[in-house]
Nucleic acid binder design. Sequence first.
DNA 1: TGCAAAATGTACTGATCGGTACACTGTGTC
DNA 2: GACACAGTGTACCGATCAGTACATTTTGCA
Lengths: 192, 192
Amino acid sequence: MRPTKRDELVQKALAAFYRTGFQATGMDRLVAETGISKTSMYKHFRTKEDLILAVLRLRDEQFRNWFARRVDELADSPRGRLLAIFDALGEWFGQPSFRGCMFIKAAAEYQEPDHPIHAQSAEHKRLMFVHVRKLAEAAGAPDPDRLARALLLLAEGAIVAAHMGYEKAPAEEARAAAAVLVSAALPGANGP
Amino acid sequence: MRPTKRDELVQKALAAFYRTGFQATGMDRLVAETGISKTSMYKHFRTKEDLILAVLRLRDEQFRNWFARRVDELADSPRGRLLAIFDALGEWFGQPSFRGCMFIKAAAEYQEPDHPIHAQSAEHKRLMFVHVRKLAEAAGAPDPDRLARALLLLAEGAIVAAHMGYEKAPAEEARAAAAVLVSAALPGANGP
DNA sequence: TGCAAAATGTACTGATCGGTACACTGTGTC
DNA sequence: GACACAGTGTACCGATCAGTACATTTTGCA
């Protein structure tokens, strides 16, 4: 297992793709921004698509780790964690480098459902769902699948709204709606 | 007011951009697909960006008209219309030509918030919000702004989920969640 | 019929795209 | 000191990109 150069490339390419987009970021631009020679890039990745897939793998790992950890830190009860999802999102949206969800954008640029980039982006969303469903189970939801799906719809909507900038505080709006859904879904209901 | 050729171009370009994406659809490809000469295109639109903006204007008009009409037809009560939003979305998702929301994709390809294409896409979302808020007002919501925002987050999430294909029936899931929110928000509550 | 506007076809520009060829340099190991 | 290997720099490939020049044909209207 050799780390360093290849990882450095993926990491820097991630930043460039996230900031500028996939199609809009050419390989020559990557050379300029990363300082890594084109020859080296194509020694590690056969095509640009392969590089993008590696970038998405890294992003998926980084984001899910960050998200899980942050949700854990932001609440101390299983039920509170379901709402902390949206506090974590709010923190994300507030970062100056925030540019929306990389996977939504990847799926938007590579539209065909069976395109590897599209499929891998969908896989990320599926893994996010698995995590949220676990949170819903831990909170004692009678139908954790359904609750997780509903919360994820709100989260997805908030991410899009935050990226497009047509709403002032999407995370807070989503959290308020989520609170209603959680109260309705969990048996030991504490009123708002 | 001369219709025909220019409108034909915008209409066909809309289909091409929607199916293939904005950056991925070159002007030469538009020539091939529309049968309209490049010279004519550039006589009507100074740049590709201008053409895209015209396409987005047409799409906004078409989609909002269709949406408003369909929501109206699908329900007979103001309250029912709030849920019919998601029935209409479900119909949209079921169309074989469905390829996600053109404005989300446009905003994903042109990321800078002050880019005209991004800004115009956000404007579409704002207009959708205005419409949904009217529906919420008509249904007697004490805080129509908040209810409309929550419903739109669900709708946005459903659109993304439908486009990425990681959920089987996003419209139905969103509708179920919306029913809970509507019941909680409206004074004359009928239980589910 | 005649004239102007609208639309066309073709061929081109310079720039950039993803990807490659090839000769070179640095580094660590036996 | 020799060999292998990772990485570099540069120059290039054919294709495509957005956009233009120019001469020609079609069309609508009087």
